[in-house]
């Protein structure tokens, strides 16, 4: 069995890719996918830690996080569709009607 630190390193890499994606990419959908990557990095960490502690609770949390992520998708995609209808564009750099 691989030591738990390998899984945590992988999850940290996934989390960093996700966070960087949010900061660097400008397409709202891609930003959103990067956020999902961050959540899944947390899922991986939870499962790995739960395995090393031999406790089930960490694995149950993953289901909570997946459910929340699904709820976020429902609202988030609806918002993105709504803004695409009015602007025909989902580039966040173009969203500049609010300024001051």
């Amino acid at each position: 069995m691989l030591p738990v630190s390998y899984y945590i390193a992988l999850s940290a890499i996934l989390f960093s890719i996700g966070a960087l994606g949010v900061l660097i990419r400008r397409n709202a959908i891609i930003i959103f996918m990067s956020v999902e990557l961050m959540l899944n990095a947390a899922n991986l960490a939870f499962v790995a830690f739960a395995r090393s502690y031999e406790s089930l609770s960490g694995q149950v949390f993953v289901f909570f996080i997946m459910t929340v992520a699904a709820a976020e998708v429902a609202v988030g995609l609806a918002l993105i569709v709504a803004i695409f209808r009015s602007k025909h564009n989902i580039d966040v750099d173009q969203m500049s009607s609010l300024k001051g």
């Binding site: 959540l39 803004i83 609010l98």
Partner: peptide, 30 residues
Amino acid sequence: LDSEEAALKYFLLGAFAGGFVVYGVALAFG
């Protein structure tokens, strides 16, 4: 448009923040 933009910005940043919280929780659990 203002309202839609506000919602999208709030959503993306809020979800981003949620990602930090949940990863922090995972590390605290570990």
